[in-house]
């Protein structure tokens, strides 16, 4: 297959699927929900900016047009450029090499490009690859703007990646059920993860020391950040059933 189709008609044609499946065995045309897909292909951004786009043009579009992550936003549930481009990626089905470029070389420079590639990988790759691809970005603490139906909130890259790994609904898309990391570790598919904070046993032992000596805790910025962020995660969880119903 040398070329892509410029439009999505053949991709969304459901009279028998001829296209290749995603590496995790799902049909890329049905990974996003039907109402969301309908909204995407109806919106002006899709028709104007996602027509005739290839893997390299995706980068230009992300840099110029994507200024926040999110699924559908506003009362009219307008699909975000982020979601439109994620859908375009589902159509283009870029290879792992290209995704590496998005994540590493491009991701260092453009944070929304990395966020987009992470989201795409979570939707299409097998569980072990998802963990391998996404976990290196857990120490990435750049800010991301996120738009919801209710308004705009601030989030971080590591929190977004963590959401992708642990939650079942992100950016108006129900993500497929991944086996937990511990199970994959027990099956010896994955190596145990080394946290950026160090060994978890040491941390638990050192808790008393931190209380006594606050300077030691302040030395490690990410440590402070993680402890600050835990309540935010809980708030997210409270909100998620409401989002799931939307």
């Amino acid at each position: 297959m040398a070329n892509h189709r410029a439009d999505e008609k053949r991709f969304l044609d459901d009279r028998g699927n001829s296209g290749p499946l995603a590496p995790n065995g799902l049909n890329p045309a049905t990974i996003m929900e039907k109402p969301v897909v309908d909204r995407i292909i109806d919106c002006y951004f899709w028709k104007d900016q996602c027509f005739g786009v290839n893997e390299a043009d995706i980068v230009s579009r992300v840099v110029d047009q994507v200024h926040f992550i999110g699924g559908t936003y506003g009362d009219s549930q307008k699909p975000s450029p982020f979601l439109c481009l994620a859908f375009k990626l589902l159509q283009l089905a870029p290879s792992d090499d290209i995704l590496r470029e998005y994540l590493d070389f491009g991701g260092e420079k453009f944070k929304y490009l990395r966020a987009l590639a992470c989201f795409y990988i979570r939707m299409t790759r097998q569980a072990k690859d998802v963990y391998r691809f996404l976990e290196p970005f857990l120490p990435d603490s750049r800010k991301l703007k996120q738009k919801r139906r209710t308004g705009t909130t601030l989030t971080y890259m590591d929190q977004f990646v963590d959401d992708l790994l642990t939650k079942d609904r992100v950016c108006a898309t129900t993500l497929y059920k991944m086996p937990k990391r511990e199970i994959l570790e027990d099956l010896e598919v994955l190596e145990p993860r080394v946290s950026a904070l160090g060994d978890i046993e040491d941390l638990l032992d050192g808790e008393d020391v931190q209380e006594v000596d606050p300077d030691a805790a302040r030395e490690d910025d990410s440590d402070v950040e993680m402890s600050n962020r835990e309540p935010a995660d809980e708030r997210e969880d409270e909100r998620s059933p409401e989002r799931a119903s939307s």
């Binding site: 297959m1 040398a2 070329n3 892509h4 189709r5 410029a6 439009d7 028709k47 027509f51 005739g52 786009v53 290839n54 893997e55 390299a56 043009d57 980068v59 230009s60 840099v63 290879s95 090499d97 290209i98 590496r100 470029e101 998005y102 070389f105 491009g106 420079k109 453009f110 490009l113």
Partner: peptide
């Protein structure tokens, strides 16, 4: 975006597939 228009201006309605090198170059350029 319609096929009618693309045919009228002499286009196939197909887009060239980019390689990882193309993507790398584009990122650098931007």
């Amino acid at each position: 975006n319609s096929m009618q228009h693309l045919r009228a201006i002499g286009q196939t309605g197909e887009v060239k597939r980019a390689t990882a090198d193309d993507v790398h170059e584009r990122i650098l350029q931007i």
